[in-house]
Design a protein around this nucleic acid. Structure first.
Lengths: 213, 213
DNA sequence: CATTTTGTTGACCCATGGGTCGAACAGCAA
DNA sequence: TTGCTGTTCGACCCATGGGTCAACAAAATG
């Protein structure tokens, strides 16, 4: 659950003023995301986060409006990690549903094992103020829909065979969202190896040609 | 996530003194488990629980030592629901690993969609005091082991075919532990139907004769 | 009815922790 | 040196909520 922490100090690189500001914001967010995931949102005090960065509590308020905003930003970054990944998902139609499914699972696993993704699935949205809460829920809904669409696409083009795409999606999300609770980055198993195993498991369950071995 | 609440009043049935005491304890626990699951442990105040039962906060302290103990009892009941179910699991050897797996999954799904089981998988153990925390973790470890053993048994007797029972167990637990987050008792899908779907999904993935259809 | 035991409560205590404020301090330009 | 702006912090405020207590109500007991 906790990645090997770089443990970089607070103000390191001396760059442009705005970049420095944005960089420090990021450092706070990463630290917060980790701590929220480990101990839970309500069990984490702002003093905890500040201490971990060797800064004071008011300094946090120089970079963020309040505790909620920090959590919201973590969730937002987690969601963006899939929806607007660095390389976009291959659009529907360019390859089989099964191939798109594999790609989606690979991305999602990577995302959910990154600090922000982990935070997204480990901490509830209850703490967020209504407006931000709604945005997060909407984001997650879109991701849900993405997987459902892919499954249906695979059923249509004959590369997948699952009786109930909606429910199947939930089972698969469950398996993936649970990863941060037991997978440790320091073990012998790499994220890529893990996602390969998970993909194999899912494919055996729903790939149309699942009698291959 | 929230079952149709009976909403029974506080002191209803007039029975033996001790039974009454124990019954009221149970009512508190069920209410607490539901609220903890819905809103989260830290988001739930003792006043919330008390209000829901139309009693006062100090009354809770007449039945329980503190907030932690209430949570612990919920977890304990959740764990017992599988380990010491009303009818014991068929012992290893009396049937195939695959059959035992089906039975285990059926039980686990039922448990995890009951108030206490839901509470067990929805709320973290961080809040518990060290001693109780250890007991809960131990309980969950035993349940983990149970599934792993069943999987290995199935591999041995040839009814199951999964390359890595440990990891497979985690995937399956993930899918099941995620159920309370999306399944609603008031929908058209019964718990039994749901567990049948989940079992079908898992069996397609790891049953040795998974080419049946 | 008196008295003890069992249940219940309003009112209170107080540690925790989110959030604020004004002072201080850095760097930099004129 | 003087000011200006961006950054940091010690000290403080105060609402929340877990937990307590003494008093009161309600059965049981005799």
């Amino acid at each position: 659950m906790t990645k090997p922490t770089p443990k970089r100090a607070w103000g390191q690189a001396i760059q442009n003023r705005d970049e420095q500001f944005e960089m420090k914001r990021q450092v706070v967010l990463r630290t917060a995301a980790r701590t929220y995931s480990d101990r839970g949102f309500h069990e984490t005090t702002l003093a905890d986060i500040a201490d971990e960065l060797n800064i004071s509590k008011p300094t946090l308020y120089y970079y963020f409006k309040n505790k909620d905003e920090i959590l919201f930003e973590c969730h937002r970054l987690g969601i963006e990690a899939i929806t607007d990944g660095d390389t976009p998902m291959p659009p529907a139609g360019t390859c089989t549903g099964r191939e798109r499914l594999e790609e989606f699972l690979r991305r999602y696993v990577r995302m959910v094992l990154d600090d922000f993704g982990t935070c997204l699935v480990m901490t509830g949205t209850n703490a967020l103020e209504p407006k931000n809460r709604g945005r997060v829920i909407e984001g997650r809904r879109k991701i849900d829909q993405m997987l459902r669409d892919i499954l249906q696409e695979g059923v249509r083009d004959g590369t997948l065979d699952c009786p109930d795409p909606k429910m199947t999606a939930m089972f698969v999300f469950g398996a993936m969202n649970w990863l941060p609770r037991w997978y440790h980055h320091d073990g012998g198993l790499s994220v890529d190896a893990l996602s390969a195993r998970l993909i194999a498991f899912v494919m055996r369950a729903i790939a149309a040609d699942r009698c291959d071995r």
